[in-house]
């Protein structure tokens, strides 16, 4: 998990990937408008946005699949448009789905892509296979792999060239919870142990929150300045507290002293939603207990992406 020490030393680390004012138009519609950010060595950078916000279009520009109409991508200082081969030698990526050759085995796929890299990549195949826990299935055809195995083979493929930056587009899509946890641990290890910069896109805040050091939010083709995840959450933290307590009626009366309160209508009969400023929560709890109310849980609901974006931009662009 991210911590303060990492945040401080990050500033001295090298910028591996930088997007400068990326813009992409499809006809009259501007799918991506002036997107800029830097990703530094050893950090996991989250790129968060709802589906259709321009995430995949941005990623396609980052890896040279699409040409930006304006702006540019630099990888370790190399201009992607002008120095494609040298720049891409530092990048490993999975764009959208981990699509590999299904009629080839895992090993044949890795050999295939190692031939597109400088000599020596093929010698890493065994090591990478064990890193992504695929050693035993490496000689099976990819058509027999589960989605999670394909995702891991895709990551092994992306790591073949010893990249400085790994770009993963929605790596958790379609995976079961165990698969998601494996990917998350792998990403943290790659950043922590190997110092690789990892760029991860997602439409789920919870996923980004658990995996990333910093996050940029994209909405309708525009991004907000990247910030550490905790800071971002702090900025938008709602002061609504959800309390499960019995009797709910009595709890609502007590909490009403701190702000507007309501008993949640259906589903959870014992839940009360109340606006309580964060610093007043302990006092509110003491009063509930003193009044003989049984408290089962207290939580702060995570705001939705849409809410975060509205909160930060003040709603001006929406």
């Amino acid at each position: 998990m991210p911590n303060a020490g990492a945040a401080e030393s990050r500033l001295e680390r090298e910028i591996v990937l930088s997007a400068e004012g990326l813009t992409k138009r499809f006809g009259k519609r501007e799918a991506v408008s002036g997107v800029s950010f830097d990703v530094r060595a050893g950090e996991v950078f989250g790129f968060l946005g709802p589906n259709g916000a321009g995430k995949t279009t941005t990623i396609r520009m980052l890896v040279g699949l699409a040409r930006p109409d304006a702006g540019r991508v630099r990888i370790r200082g190399l201009d992607l448009a002008r120095d494609f081969e040298r720049a891409m030698a530092h990048v490993g990526s999975i764009v959208e789905a981990p699509d590999l050759y299904k009629y080839l085995t895992g090993r044949e796929n890795l050999l295939h892509f190692s031939r597109m890299l400088p000599p020596g990549a093929a010698e890493r195949i065994e090591e990478l296979a064990s890193l992504v826990a695929l050693s035993e299935r490496l000689d099976d055809r990819v058509s027999a792999y589960s989605l999670g195995m394909r995702q891991r083979l895709g990551i092994a493929q992306a790591l073949l060239g010893n990249p400085d930056i790994l770009i993963l587009d929605e790596p958790a899509n379609g995976l079961d919870p165990a698969g998601i946890r494996e990917i998350r641990q792998l990403v943290r290890r790659l950043a922590g142990e190997r110092g690789i910069a990892v760029f991860v896109s997602s439409h789920l805040l919870s996923e980004i929150e658990q995996m990333c050091d910093r996050v940029a939010i994209i909405h309708r083709g525009r991004t907000l300045a990247a910030a550490p995840v905790a800071e971002l959450l702090e900025r938008v933290a709602s002061d609504v507290v959800r309390v499960r307590a019995r009797p709910a009626q009595r709890a609502a009366e007590i909490l009403a002293a701190f702000g507007p309160t309501e008993i949640e209508p259906e589903g959870a009969a014992d839940a009360v939603a109340a606006r309580v400023p964060p610093e007043k929560v302990p006092e509110a709890l003491r009063r509930l207990l003193a009044a003989g109310v049984d408290v089962y849980s207290v939580e702060r609901p995570v705001p939705s992406l849409e809410e975060i974006f509205l909160e930060i931009t003040g709603g001006e662009t929406v």
Binding site: E85, E96, D99, L117, P118
Partner: peptide
């Protein structure tokens, strides 16, 4: 059709 074009064209080969 297989989607592999996305890897093929993001390798350091023009």
């Amino acid at each position: 059709q297989q989607g592999t074009i996305k890897i093929l064209l993001t390798r350091p080969v023009r």
